[in-house]
Structures are given as structure tokens and as C-alpha cells.
Nucleic acid binder design. Structure first.
Lengths: 248, 248
DNA sequence: TCGCGCGCTTGATCTGGGTCAAAGTTAACC
DNA sequence: GGTTAACTTTGACCCAGATCAAGCGCGCGA
């Protein structure tokens, strides 16, 4: 299962791209050294499963680069994505043996891993880590609740618009692109993955994207490259007016 | 807005019904004394709004008794419940000014409150509180993700069965009822509140409850009193087979 | 005791999105 | 450079659940 996995030469925490957003964000230099002792890197290829639901997890860690998804599957095969893991997001749960979800890399992914036991011990002695993890978990909970509204009460068009606006927004903040006028980004998900995220079928996703294109809300180049000429228009289509603190 | 609110005479933490499940669960006696200094009780009547979405929160706290809900509302009035707060559940978010959701008491509720600032300060000096809060938040996140599957992929009948089995399960653990054979409990929610939880209309909720009754999955006395003759049958109807660790 | 209202049930009809089917696109791989 | 397979689009049709509309029944206040 892991034969195609390569181990990259480790790099220094101080120059890590997610140094100031991951679990380690609040750590002082000495705390970082302690973390550095127990960390290692793992690479996953696009499509590869990082962790299977039910498996016991012997590590926790952060996504350094790439995108992974958290999904739940019913016996009959219906699946629902329950989390989208971007760089700096944390994987695994301290104090729990197994994973409740499948974690799958949707692009090539580099993860910064810590063996679970040592990490848990370190966490007890290092409040900065627990504090940051609490903060991140609360943010994830807010995001999950936002998605409950999307899943429970929005129609297909609003769902697509919601997903696009979220991807656009995080892309703008991650890449710090100027955002003068039009937003431009690449969809990191297939139509099927979008459907799994939104509780739709891939056909409906395709139709609604076509409709948004036809109505001029978005512009498409190829299947994945999206231009949003007017972000507030997209927000309107998503059903949440207030322009989301995008330009705060 | 708060004129009908009464302040109950405070009682001792040591004999508090949620002593061992709330944020304070891990606190030692001395830590509890520190908490006791900044705590106060508030009572809310059924139907009363505890916190309005967007309001700045000057306190955080635990539900001591009764049931409250967390809901999100869109401009056009569509609402989605995003959390169900039972005794011992925590309300409010340290490190954030305003509430993102409406918090509404669905039954009479007693809350154990802490002024936000002092609580945050105390939390910094008391890892036991932060640890417990992290644990509770991770559990809430798991519950939220479970609901995302329900909202995104289950049909109306499965949704109702899922809700019933969750209520049945927590009722069994809270009240420590023997659970020999049939489960019996009262629905703490109106049909409309169930609909808001499940992303359905109240008519569909009503129809599906009638259908489950007709099919012998549940038995109803009045509108609220439910008997589940065969719990595993209910689980099957909910779409998740594995009998949920109910008898662990 | 009556009547009013709220919460609930049930029926009739409509429709958004699912399902099934087929064909178009793109990119990877001989 | 052509074949293939994965991904996507589009069309036709159908059904689960929404919507609209009546009525029921219990509890509360006068």
C-alpha cells in the first residue's frame, strides 16, 4: 500500500511554508526544536489514500502542500465529503486510536508527520501546541457548520456558487493575489468530488456549472480554470449576501 | 429582552450534575474554586433566545439542564440547525467576540456562565480546562461531520431514523436507563425543529414519522412519547448498520 | 366550559434534482 | 500520432420531497 511512497529530505521548520499557520504556529524556537526531533515527511501521490476509515492511526500531522479530502462512506457506497484539507490543516486526532474517515490525497501531497504517542506527550508539556490546535479545531467546527447550512438548505445552484466562492476566497488569501477586479483560480476537485462535497450528483454539478457560465457568473477555460468577473455577484448566487469579509 | 430571566441561587460545583462531563470535568478541587469565583447561573424559559447571531458575547458557559439549539438563518428566512446543546455542552467560543449562530432554549434551560475575559485568562493558567475544551470540541466536530453525511446523502426516512436513534442513544446514556428490550424517550423537539435539523420541511417530517409508526419501527403515545421496540431495526432504517457502540 | 391557537397530520399537486443513457473532450501511453 | 480511458457534458424521463391547502386535537386562558 505504501510502496510508491517516497521520503523527501526533511527541511527546516523555520523556513517551512506553513510555519505560521499550522499546529506549530505559536511555538517558540525551543518548542520547535522539540517538534523537529519527532517529525518526518511523507509524500502521497494524487489519488492515493492517506488513511483508511477505521484504521488505527500511528501518526498525526499537517498538510504542507497539496490538497486532501476527508470522506465518509455508507455501506451501499454513498459518500459524503466532510472536510477539505489545505496546506497547514491538521490530520488526525490526539487521544483517539482510529480514524473515523477516509483521508485521500486529491493532488500530490506532502505531509509533516509526528508519531502519535510522542506528539501527545509533547502536547501535554507544550500549551502552545494545544492552544493552537484548539483554535484550529474551533475554526474547523465553524466551517463544518457553515457546510451544514449549505447541505441542508441551499439548492444546487447556490451550492455550486458557495463552493466556488470558498475556493476563490482561500485561493486569494493563500496566494495573496492582488484581487483587482476579476478572481482567477483552478478547481482542485473533479466534478465527482464536488458532487461528494455538495451532496449532489456529478451530472447536476456539471449542469449548474454550465448554467453559471451561460449566465456570465463565471468564465471557464478548459474544465478547471475559472475566472470570476464579479465576486459579489457570485456571493449573491451563493445565497449569502454580506461579502464575506473578503476585503477586510 | 432579559426581563423574564431569573437568577437561581448558586449551588456547589462539587454536587453539580454535570461536574464530570462539562468543561470543568478535569479540574482539581483548587481549580474548581477558581472557576467558582467567576461563575454565575442564568435561567432561560422555553422559546427564549439565549444569544442572537452577531451579538457580541460577554460570557461563555455550560448547559446545566434543558436543551438549546444552535441555528443559522439566511436572509430569506431559511434556517438550518447546526447544533443541539444538551446538559454539559459548552456555549460560546473563547477568543471570538461575536456569536456566529442564534442560540435558543427549546426547553427551560439553566446555564452555568463565566464572564468571557476572566474565563479566558483562567484558561491560560489552567491547562485542564483547555484540554477538556479541546476534547469536547473534537467530539462536536465529529458529530457535525456525522450530520453532514445525514444532510448530504440520506433520504427523508433515513434522516428521521438517524435523528431518533441519536436521541434514543443519548437518552439512554444520560438517564442510564436499563435498555432491556425497548427504548422509551420523549422527543425534545417540535416537528419544525426536527425539520430544521434535518434539512426537511415539517410536513415531510410528519409523514415519515407516521410511516415509521405504520411500519412498526416506532410506537407513539401522543406526539412526543416514543417507544422503540427494536433498536437495531431503527439503526437499519437509519442506513448505518453497525449498532453504534450502543452496548459497549 | 368554551373557544382560540398552536402544533400536527394528511391530501393533492408540482418540480428540482436524481437516474439512465449517449456522446463529446482531454490527456496519458504505446 | 493514434488508441484508450477517465472525465465531462447534455438530453430525456421520473420520483422524492417541496409546496399549497385543509382539517384535526390538545392545552390554555377567559
Amino acid at each position: 500500500m505504501l510502496q510508491d511512497e517516497k521520503v523527501k529530505s526533511p527541511h527546516e521548520c523555520e523556513e517551512c511554508p506553513i510555519r505560521h499557520r499550522a499546529v506549530c504556529a505559536r511555538c517558540e524556537t525551543d518548542e520547535l526544536e522539540r517538534l523537529e526531533e519527532i517529525k518526518y515527511y511523507r509524500n502521497f501521490e494524487a489519488g492515493q489514500t492517506v488513511i483508511w476509515s477505521g484504521d488505527k492511526m500511528d501518526f498525526v500531522g499537517s498538510v504542507v502542500s497539496g490538497i486532501a479530502t476527508l470522506t465518509q462512506t455508507m455501506e451501499d457506497g454513498r459518500t459524503q465529503m466532510v472536510g477539505l484539507l489545505l496546506p497547514s490543516d491538521f490530520v488526525g486526532r490526539p487521544g483517539r486510536e482510529g480514524s473515523a474517515y477516509d483521508v485521500v490525497a486529491t493532488t500530490d501531497v506532502v505531509m509533516c508527520c509526528f508519531r502519535k504517542k510522542p506528539f501527545e506527550q509533547l502536547m501535554e508539556r507544550t500549551p502552545h501546541i494545544a492552544q493552537r490546535l484548539l483554535e484550529m479545531t474551533l475554526d474547523e467546527l465553524d466551517a463544518a457548520r457553515e457546510w451544514m447550512l449549505v447541505l441542508g438548505r441551499k439548492n444546487a445552484r447556490e451550492k455550486i456558487a458557495s463552493l466556488l466562492s470558498i475556493i476563490a476566497r482561500r485561493d486569494a488569501t493563500l496566494n495573496l493575489r492582488p484581487t483587482e477586479g476579476a478572481l482567477v483560480f483552478d478547481l482542485p476537485l473533479t466534478r465527482e468530488a464536488m458532487a461528494d462535497y455538495l451532496g449532489l450528483t456529478l451530472e447536476t454539478v456539471s449542469r449548474q456549472i454550465s448554467a453559471l457560465k451561460r449566465d456570465g457568473v463565471i468564465h471557464l477555460e478548459g474544465k478547471r480554470h475559472v475566472t470570476v468577473p464579479d465576486f459579489s455577484r457570485l456571493m449573491e448566487e451563493a445565497g449569502d449576501d454580506s461579502d464575506g469579509g473578503m476585503f477586510a
